[in-house]
Design a protein around this nucleic acid. Structure first.
Lengths: 258, 258
DNA sequence: CGGTATATTGAAGTCGGTCAAACCCGGTGG
DNA sequence: CCACCGGGTTTGACCGACTTCAATATACCG
C-alpha cells in the first residue's frame, strides 16, 4: 500500500525545509553531527532519513501499530479518518517542520491515516527511543505536549461555527504563517499543495463553496489565485475575517515588509 | 469570584458518584485509606475533599495559573472559552467521575474557564504531585493521556459536519453512556443538568434548533422529555442517527436489560 | 491532440438561523 | 390560595448561507 521510493532524487522537492528550521532539529542525529553538537544533553532519537512518498502514498494507516512519529521535510501530508458511512474527514495538514502521529499516543495505534497530498519526504522518530529520552529529560515532555497542542488548537478553532469566508481566510493565513515560519515560500505568497476538494473537506465545506469563496475573495481584490499558488493582496482584510477564528496572530499582517 | 460553600450538607447532591466508580479512585488518599490499600505502588495525590460550587460558580477561569486538576464528584461542570467577539463557546461537559483541567497541561495556565451548571462537588489533584508520581510510575502517563484523549475524541467528533439530529442523538447517547458508567441514573433515563441553551451552544446550534430537534424526537417516539430529565424510548433509532458521529458504541442499545 | 480529473459557475433546494410571540414553571408577594 | 412576574423554553414564519445537481471550463498527462 505504501508507495515508497528509495531514491530521493527521483522526486521533485518543491518546498524542502532546512534542518535548521525543523521543529525537532535538535533531536536529529545527522543534523547534530553536521553542526558538531556533541553534548549529550538530549538523547538523539530522530532518524534523519527521508523516505519519499509520492502523491496519494500513505505514511501510515489508521489502525497501524504506533511505533514512529514523523517530521515532514518537504511536501505536504494530510491526516484523515473515515466514518461509519465511508465519508473521509480530513483532520489536518502537515507542512515541512511539522510533526505528525501524535493521535496515536493515546491508544498505541494510529487513529487516523496519513497520506501525502504532494511528493513528500519525512523523517522518523522511534517512539520507544523518544519515551526513554523523555524519562531522562522531563522538559521534553512539555515540548511534546506543546507540539500536540498545536493540532488541538487548530482542530478546536475549526470546530467553531464560522462562515465559509471566515474559515477560508483563517485557513489561508494559517498556512501562510506556517510557510513563513519554515522559511518556505515568499512574503505575500501561499502554496496550496493540496487539491481544493481537500481544503473544502478540511473546512467542512462543499468543494463548490470553497471555490466560490476564493472567487469572491479574488473579485474583492483580497487574493490573486492561480491553481495551486496564490498571492495574498490584502492581508488586513483577510485578517479581519479570520480574526475571530483565533488561530492566526495579528502579527501576520505586518510581515509584509519581510 | 469563586462561590464556594464550605459546608457540603447545605447543597443538594443529585448525582453523587461513589469513589469506587471514580476514574481516579486509586489515586485518592481517603478512598485508599477507607479500603485499606496501603501498598505504595502509586503515590497518593488526590485530595478527597469536596468544595461545593453552586450553579454558575467557577472552578477556575481561563488564564488562571495551572496548579490543580479536578475530578467531579457530583453535579456537572461545563468548560468554555470566549472568542474575540465575546461569544461563549462551550468546550465540554464533565460528569461525576470525569476529570477536567487537562487543557492547561500545554501552557501552564487554563485555556478555558470551568463553571458549574448545577450544584457541584469536585475533588482536586495537585499537578505538581501528580507530575512526581508520573516520573516514578510511567504507566500513569499513559493513563493521563487516555483521559485527555476522551476530551479530544468528543471535540473531534463534534467538529464534524453532522446534522442537528445526528449531533443531538450522539450527545444524548454519549451522556447516557457516561451516566451509566458512573452508576448514576437508571437504564433508559438521562438527566440533563445543563440548560438547553448550553446544550445548543455545545452542539453549535441555536437554542431554538435544539429545542425543535428534541420536539421532533418526541413526536417520533424516540424520547419522552420533561424539562431536565428525559427517557430514551428508542435506543436503536437514536443510535442509528448517532452512529456516524462516532462517539457512542453500539453496545449502548443493548443495555436496555441492565 | 484527446481523455480524464479537477475547478469553476449557475440555478434550485434545504437546513438551520433569526426574529417574534406564546408558553410554562418556579418564585414572590398580596 | 391565587395573581403576577421573569427566566428559560417552545413554536411559528421568514430568511440566508451553504449544499446539491448540472453544466461548462480548465489543467494535467499520456
Amino acid at each position: 500500500m505504501m508507495k515508497s521510493i528509495k531514491n530521493p532524487e527521483s522526486q521533485p522537492k518543491c518546498n524542502v525545509i532546512g534542518c535548521e528550521n525543523c521543529g525537532v532539529g535538535d533531536l536529529c542525529a545527522r543534523y547534530r553531527a553536521e553542526t558538531h553538537q556533541t553534548d549529550n544533553q538530549v538523547e538523539v532519537v530522530l532518524q534523519h532519513y527521508h523516505p519519499v512518498t509520492e502523491t496519494g502514498g500513505h505514511i501510515y494507516w489508521a489502525g497501524d501499530k504506533f511505533e514512529q512519529l514523523y517530521a515532514v521535510r518537504s511536501g505536504c501530508v494530510k491526516t484523515y479518518t473515515v466514518d461509519a458511512e465511508g465519508n473521509e474527514r480530513i483532520r489536518g495538514f502537515y507542512l515541512p517542520g511539522d510533526m505528525l502521529g501524535f493521535d496515536a499516543l493515546y491508544s498505541d495505534e494510529y487513529t487516523s491515516s496519513a497520506c501525502a497530498v504532494a511528493p513528500t519526504e519525512v523523517c522518523s522518530i522511534s517512539y520507544a527511543q523518544l519515551s526513554k529520552a523523555v524519562a531522562s529529560q522531563p522538559h521534553l515532555q512539555q515540548r511534546l505536549l506543546r507540539l500536540m497542542s498545536k493540532d488541538l488548537a487548530t482542530a478546536m478553532a475549526l470546530a467553531g461555527d464560522y462562515t465559509a469566508e471566515q474559515r477560508m481566510a483563517a485557513f489561508l493565513l494559517h498556512l501562510y504563517e506556517r510557510e513563513l515560519q519554515g522559511h518556505i515560500g515568499d512574503a505575500g505568497h501561499v502554496s496550496l499543495l493540496m487539491p481544493r476538494r481537500d481544503i473544502a473537506n478540511f473546512l467542512r465545506l462543499a468543494p463548490e463553496t470553497a471555490s466560490r469563496v476564493l472567487s469572491r475573495f479574488q473579485k474583492q481584490g483580497l487574493i490573486r489565485s492561480s491553481q495551486r499558488s496564490l498571492e495574498l493582496l490584502n492581508l488586513t482584510a483577510l485578517w479581519q475575517l479570520a480574526q475571530s477564528v483565533g488561530i492566526v496572530s495579528e502579527q501576520i499582517v505586518r510581515i509584509k515588509a519581510a
